[in-house]
């Protein structure tokens, strides 16, 4: 169990803030709270948005009563349980680490005192759990990066990083789901579509899923079919 507080965040939202370190256990509990709130079909509710240690609930402003809704949610949460991970999926993401698609791979190797091959081996060895989505459409906040691969962000962010670029920023690794400006070190690229507007759920993964990267050649990258 985790301690939390229910707070009015704005005239159309409230935010539940959870105490304690960020952990998968906490994420499981936050998703349990999200389930309880969704199942209650509260008047005026639009959607809920989970994050590392908070959960936002958005309402139609004229259809909710903030104080009353807060206390209803307090009650709902008293029976909240961590969700099981039985419907969590593992996603294998093919990544080409060829220098032509990995402008910062050499730099990351230098900074981390590893060879390029070691960087790739370490990056593909771990399974990365999804904690939350946000920042960009379909962007996954992943945990589990080997501390040996931690590498500070670029001093001058690129104006455009292409969709599919796989990167390391500080203590995190991630995949750029769409073309966007970015300051992370690009160490490879996946040919797989990460954000897909034709899907009912447009992101490739959900919280508590895991991501594993697998190395592919430039030929495999170029002949990849969606």
């Amino acid at each position: 169990m985790f301690n939390y507080s229910v707070n009015i965040n704005s005239d159309n939202s409230l935010i539940i803030e959870f105490k304690g370190e960020i952990s998968l256990e906490l994420t499981r509990f936050i998703l349990g709270c999200k389930q309880n709130i969704e199942q209650a079909q509260l008047t005026g509710i639009i959607e809920t948005v989970p994050a590392y240690n908070s959960l936002l609930a958005i309402f139609k402003p004229l259809e909710w009563e903030p104080v009353q809704t807060s206390s209803t949610i307090e009650k709902l949460l008293s029976s909240a349980k961590a969700v099981e991970t039985s419907d969590s999926e593992k996603h294998i993401i093919p990544v080409c680490y060829d220098a032509s698609l990995a402008p910062d791979l050499e730099y990351v190797a230098q900074r981390t005192n590893l060879s390029v091959k070691e960087v790739v081996n370490l990056h593909t060895a771990n399974q990365y759990p999804v904690y939350m989505l946000g920042f960009l459409p379909g962007f996954l906040y992943l945990g589990g990066l080997n501390p040996k691969l931690h590498c500070t962000r670029r001093d001058d962010p690129r104006a455009k990083v292409e969709a599919g670029s796989v990167a390391i920023g500080g203590e995190q690794t991630g995949i750029y789901p769409i073309d966007s400006p970015g300051g992370w070190n690009i160490i490879g690229k996946t040919p797989k579509r990460i954000f897909d507007i034709t899907k009912n759920k447009p992101a490739i993964a959900k919280p508590l899923d895991t991501i594993q990267f697998t190395s592919i050649s430039l030929d495999e990258f170029n002949s990849y079919e969606h």
Binding site: G134, P137, P202
Partner: peptide
Amino acid sequence: RPNYLEYGVS
């Protein structure tokens, strides 16, 4: 476009 914030879509 409500209902997609949890996918990072504003």
